[in-house]
Write a protein that binds this DNA or RNA. Structure first.
Lengths: 203, 203, 203, 203
DNA sequence: ACTATCGGGACCGCCCGTTAGT
DNA sequence: ACTAACGGGCGGTCCCGATAGT
């Protein structure tokens, strides 16, 4: 009996994911408002009742999607933490991420923007959207601090520098996603970080 | 006769601007989709007939707003071009702009995001939105080139550096607009540019 | 299970018919364009959601109505085919139909005209509207041919005569529906056919 | 001065006709309801004010068009009255009209239907639309009476026969206009009248 | 006589979410 | 768990007509 239930739960979870992915696809293509719940249903090959069985509203579905995205970001960050080597080397290695995001980006950019857009109006979304930035900044701040401690950087305000790095990354990302062929974004991000590190070297 | 005609045209132009400003306000507050044309009319104190006399659709109104914004950016850029002094000084002076935008930002951020969001879907908006970036990059590129020529910077790829500066600015802006109290954005932008310039100095 | 399902389908079909009849009534009273979907909903005692669940557009609803009308005509034609007796007798018996249509006409005339009117502009409607004429003409053509074969008529072009009969019927119908009291349409249609038959007799 | 006024009146009248013709064209193409006053203005190359200067409403413009059409019919009838020869010959000669109408018809049919359609709902239009039928019927009635008097026809009810002839003509017309290539309408109308006349001959 | 601007209104289509049913 | 039917409502668009202006 518990096995059967497990089966059913499994099926249910599958459906839930089908819906989430259909929603992501639709939102990315047309935007949140322009996407009707009906369309999501069709994309998922389900009926409305199914969607409203798993999510209490369209908004709820969106937030679930947001949370899913954030979890992904956390996972990425966790991978980063395991990097070894000197601090500057570690930072440079991270430009890799930019490339990864850019590659998988075409599909996801519109969703990012959708998140930002909602964040400007919806407090709950706003909080959730900003969270990762703070976390990234904190992470970089610690790295900078370590760099200063180990003597490979001059004494600067770690928080400021962390913010600068995150800003540079975000700016590159948005431009790269909006205009993939406008520049060699990977190269630019690498060079940008190099210049920054150069500027942070001990005199 | 043409003088009298001017009166009517003048009034018409006034109305047009009233509509644009009402639309900007509404879009910023609630977002494009959540703003009904009716609401814009009420905000402007006009009827639907008036709005649809001046703009052929809600979308058209939006694009007009976008164009207006771009013109403003161009004006800002034009002012910048007149700055004197050494290149690094000039660049640092420009962080001023970031402050200005941030100050007037609360009102405009949602509109920016609305632009970006639309840009991801609408080719016309996309083109118009990207245009300023290219222009800014070109402008910075020339500055860098001058800096290298005048010997105040080491030889680097001017385009890359320009892209980096713009990216940094964009990233700071978005974060600053989303999270005004999250950092001292003005200070950070100033420091960021300083570090970059440090990194660009001749060895 | 399929039995229970039938219940729901049944109810659904009932609703569909309720909508169709409400639409027919409204279109007949006010005309297609002057009838708002909302009014149809009120007449049917249903909500817009119901109507747009069963029909994809107002136009679609109209076409469904047209198809329904055509099916009715086919049924009438099928009844006619079973008539016995000599050909001329059969033809004369058919003036009955004119009477029937005229009696039920007050309600339906405006719909006919609506069909014709749309037919002039919409190819789909045009085709569907013309179909019955061709069928009637073919039917009469065969009757005339039989009449010639059995010797009760002189040799004439059956197609032409069929067209003439249909035309006479159509002309009488339209006039009769537009101006019910302008003549004794039943009598006139009977006499008209008699004169025609007289003219078709063998010399 | 009166010359100048005449000039102005002339110009005004020209404009009026321009509007009427633009309206006829638009109504024929799209139908009354689907034609916006604005479209008529554009077709006529005028502004809305001009139209509303000459006609008090869209409806008024339509009625003016109807009246214009009726006047044309009267003119045609007047020409008919001058025909000479025996009654049957005269009748047969009239099939010519059917051809004329059919030839010029493609453009006008939708307007006819528009008239009929409105007639079903608007009493004023209804009266005006029916008038010509009554007049035609009366005209034919007199011809039949003459035919009986001169001995070329047997004694029948002239009114009935007149109604039959008009009905036949109307039916042929509508079919011919809706489906120009569906039959050789000229030939059919000629044969139809011949058969009728045959049936009206003295035994 | 004719134009440009504007007011007010209504309609179609769609959409979100609920409920009765399976 | 999932479907189909339905309710209630709103939004963009367009349209007719009026008025101020030329």
């Amino acid at each position: 009996m518990s096995l059967l239930m497990a089966r059913q739960q499994e099926r249910s979870e599958e459906t839930r994911i089908r819906i989430l992915e259909a929603a992501e696809k639709c939102f990315a293509q047309k935007g949140y408002d322009a996407t009707s719940v009906m369309r999501i249903c069709q994309t998922a090959g389900l009926s409305k009742g199914a969607v409203y069985h798993h999510f209490s509203s369209k908004e709820d579905l969106f937030v679930a999607l947001l949370r899913r995205w954030l979890d992904g970001l956390d996972a990425q960050l966790a991978v980063l933490r395991e990097n070894k080597g000197s601090i500057p080397e570690g930072l440079l290695a991270m430009t890799e991420i930019v490339r990864e995001i850019l590659q998988s980006g075409e599909r996801q950019l519109p969703m990012y923007l959708e998140f930002y857009n909602k964040a400007a109006r919806d407090h709950r979304v706003w909080r959730a959207t900003l969270e990762p930035y703070r976390r990234y900044r904190e992470y970089f701040s610690q790295m900078i601090q370590s760099g200063i401690s180990e003597g490979s950087m001059r004494a600067v305000d770690p928080d400021s520098v962390a913010t600068i790095i995150v800003s540079l990354g975000l700016g590159l990302l948005i431009q790269g996603l909006l205009d993939p062929t406008g520049a060699d974004w990977e190269k630019v991000s690498y060079e940008g970080l190099q210049i920054l590190l150069q500027g942070l070297r001990k005199p």
